[in-house]
Design a binder for these strands. Sequence first.
DNA 1: GAATCATATTAGTAGTGACTAATACATTTG
DNA 2: CAAATGTATTAGTCACTACTAATATGATTC
Lengths: 110, 110
Amino acid sequence: MNAFDVLSDPVRRRTLELISQKEHASGEIVAVVEAEFGISQSAVSQHLRVLRDTGFAKVRKDGAKRCYEIDPSGFDDVNDWLDQLRHFWASKMDALATEIERGKRSGNST
Amino acid sequence: MNAFDVLSDPVRRRTLELISQKEHASGEIVAVVEAEFGISQSAVSQHLRVLRDTGFAKVRKDGAKRCYEIDPSGFDDVNDWLDQLRHFWASKMDALATEIERGKRSGNST
DNA sequence: GAATCATATTAGTAGTGACTAATACATTTG
DNA sequence: CAAATGTATTAGTCACTACTAATATGATTC
């Protein structure tokens, strides 16, 4: 499964949101996702496996618990691809400057 | 279909690569994708529809031809989500500075 | 060491979406 | 207009993946 497929699942995106803020035990993730999506512990565990296997999450053992934290390396392919696209259209589209700058800066000196 | 689902398909990603560089007629896209992926005109047309419907591509009529160009607005959700995640882990992870700066130093939205 | 807690794995199922084949629609050309 | 070109749509099929239920594994507690 490639990086884009990983991010295409809403449960995995929510999980990444959680572990990007701070490390979370599997059980904590299960609690949140179970509440929000209504799926089982098993399902969450399978998603966590995907995140591990694809380099989006790292695990640490803490007794019987498994603590998950985000692993940015999983995003490399996605970032690279998006950057590549932006490179092309940024060099062509000017009327899009607003679009592109949106959310980055509120004033520029050009 | 949401933005992440759109990007999870390799044919659609390839199509976005093509039309991000310059406008292309449907037939040109079909030619490339048919060669690289071995799928039919119909399949490509269905992918183009998805890209239109989700704000990733804009179409212009040119006689019987349909010219597709990229529409950056489709990427907004993806960019926002990725930015949000980066915001959190950026405040925590330091060894990642390189990763984060890459793509920002050019002044583009990420 | 049995019971319990925390998580992972496995087998089987169902829904989604990507595909083909056929056809429709729209435009250009003879 | 008829034929040809260019693209879109539709119906049906198949593969994939997310899910549940059941079970396994592994750590903690009594």
